[in-house]
Amino acid sequence: MEALMRVTDTLKSFREARLSGLRPPQEFFDVTRVSRPADMNQATSRISYNTRYFSGNYLLIVALLAVYAVLTNWLLLISLVFLVGGFAAINRFAPDATQFGEHTITQKHLYTGLFVIGIPMFWIAGPFGTFFWLIGASGVLILGHASLLEPGVESDYANIQDQV
């Protein structure tokens, strides 16, 4: 129960810290501010400003792409559920050694069995391909959006606030 409370507190603090900075969809998808940057310097300054300004939105995009990647790779989803579920089940239902006939089965034996089955399953699922797809898809979407969207009027005043 204490671990559940820690996870809940962590999620709550994460939501307050990062997701409180979410910009409204009308501002994030404002097509009137979309334009091609004149040169690389302008693109770089747009990317620099927009990645800070829309950081909550971009984090949400990465999270949604990660969920999509796991849900479309069934073997990866099954292996993750098997490993995480097995780990949780061993911790919850087998904290003490169990006697089966002449054999004593400890948590160490159960973890060994879990990893002997789970790690090859996870490896076959191709987590590295999914991870690199996530990096590529996120990079293309975020850098594309950040470079094409002109900063708003508030960006002109950001330097003044930093100097004060």
Rank of each mutant, 00 (worst) to 15 (best):
I47L: 09
D30V: 07
S48N: 13
S45I: 05
Y58D: 08
Q42W: 08
N41R: 15
S45G: 02
A43D: 04
N50A: 06
M40T: 00
R33W: 05
E27Y: 06
I47E: 06
N41F: 15
F54N: 00
R46N: 04
R46K: 00
P25K: 04
Q42Y: 06
V31D: 07
L60A: 09
R33L: 05
P25G: 00
M40Y: 09
F29I: 02
F54H: 00
D30F: 02
Y58N: 01
Y49D: 00
M40P: 03
E27K: 01
F54Q: 07
T44N: 13
P25Y: 07
T32K: 15
R52E: 15
N57E: 11
R46W: 06
F29Y: 12
R46F: 04
T51S: 10
R46I: 01
Q42K: 12
N57Y: 09
M40K: 09
N57W: 13
A43E: 11
F54K: 07
Y53H: 10
Y49P: 00
F29K: 05
D39P: 01
R36P: 08
P37H: 02
S35M: 11
V31T: 10
Q26V: 04
V34T: 06
Q26E: 10
G56T: 08
S35W: 10
Q42C: 03
R33I: 00
N57L: 00
Q26S: 04
M40F: 12
L59D: 12
R33V: 03
A43F: 09
G56V: 10
F28S: 03
L60K: 10
S55W: 14
A38N: 10
N50T: 05
S48W: 14
D39F: 10
F28L: 03
R46Y: 04
E27G: 06
L60G: 06
Y53Q: 04
Q26Y: 02
T32H: 13
N50I: 04
A43C: 07
N41D: 14
R46V: 00
V34C: 11
S55L: 12
P37K: 01
S48E: 14
F54A: 05
V34N: 09
A43T: 04
R52H: 14
N41T: 11
A43K: 09
Y49R: 02
Y58P: 08
N41W: 15
F28Q: 05
V31N: 07
Y58W: 11
T32S: 15
R52P: 02
A43S: 09
L60I: 07
A43H: 09
L59V: 11
F29S: 01
T44A: 14
I47P: 01
E27N: 02
F54G: 00
R52Y: 12
S45N: 11
Y53F: 11
R33K: 04
A38D: 11
L60S: 12
S55E: 13
T32P: 01
G56D: 14
S48F: 13
A38M: 10
V31C: 08
T51A: 03
T51Q: 11
R52S: 14
D30H: 03
T51K: 05
P37M: 03
R46L: 04
F28M: 08
D30C: 06
L60M: 14
S55A: 10
T51P: 06
V31W: 15
S55Q: 13
I47S: 01
T44G: 10
S48L: 14
S45M: 13
